[in-house]
Simulated assay, not measured.
Amino acid sequence: MPSISDIIERYLVKALKEAPSGAIQVKRNELADRFQCVPSQINYVISTRFTVEKGYIVESKRGGGGYIRIRKVRFASPKAYFDVLMRQIGDAITQSTAEDVIDRLQEEKVMSDREARMAKKVISRDVLQLPVRMRDQVRARIMRALVTTLFASKGE
Score class of each variant (00 low, 15 high):
Arg133Ile: 09
Ser47Val: 09
Gln95Lys: 06
Gln41Asn: 05
Met118Gly: 08
Arg141Ile: 12
Glu107Phe: 12
Gly90Ala: 11
Asp113Glu: 15
Glu53Asn: 15
Val58Cys: 08
Gln95Gly: 11
Ser77Glu: 10
Ile46Gly: 04
Lys79Ser: 06
Glu59Cys: 04
Lys54Glu: 13
Thr97Cys: 05
Lys61Glu: 15
Glu59Ile: 05
Ile42Asp: 01
Val45Trp: 01
Ile46His: 05
Glu107Pro: 01
Arg49Ala: 10
Asp91Glu: 14
Gln41Tyr: 07
Leu105Phe: 07
Gly64Thr: 11
Val101Gly: 02
Tyr67Gln: 02
Val127Met: 06
Gly63Leu: 09
Pro78Tyr: 01
Leu128Thr: 09
Ile93Tyr: 00
Arg139His: 08
Gln129Cys: 07
Glu59Ala: 06
Ser112Met: 03
Val138Asn: 01
Val110Arg: 08
Leu130Cys: 09
Ile57Leu: 09
Ile102Phe: 01
Leu105Ile: 07
Lys120Met: 11
Leu85Ile: 03
Ile57Trp: 00
Ile42Met: 04
Gln106Gly: 05
Ile142His: 02
Glu108Pro: 02
Lys72Ala: 15
Thr97Asp: 13
Thr97Gln: 14
Ala140Val: 10
Gly55Asn: 08
Glu107Arg: 07
Arg62Trp: 05
Val132Met: 10
Arg135His: 08
Ile57Cys: 02
Arg104Thr: 03
Val110Thr: 04
Ser77Phe: 02
Arg49Gly: 10
Asn43Thr: 15
Tyr44Leu: 10
Val84Arg: 09
Met143Pro: 01
Arg135Asn: 11
Val127Ser: 01
Ile142Gly: 07
Ile57Asp: 06
Ile93His: 01
Met86Leu: 15
Asp113Gln: 15
Lys79Gly: 06
Arg141Ala: 14
Val127Ala: 01
Ile68Trp: 13
Arg104Glu: 00
Ser47His: 13
Leu130Ala: 05
Ile123Ala: 02
Val101Phe: 04
Tyr56Pro: 03
Ile68Asn: 10
Tyr44Phe: 14
Gly65Cys: 07
Met143Asn: 02
Val138Lys: 02
Met118Trp: 13
Ile102Ala: 05
Val52Glu: 15
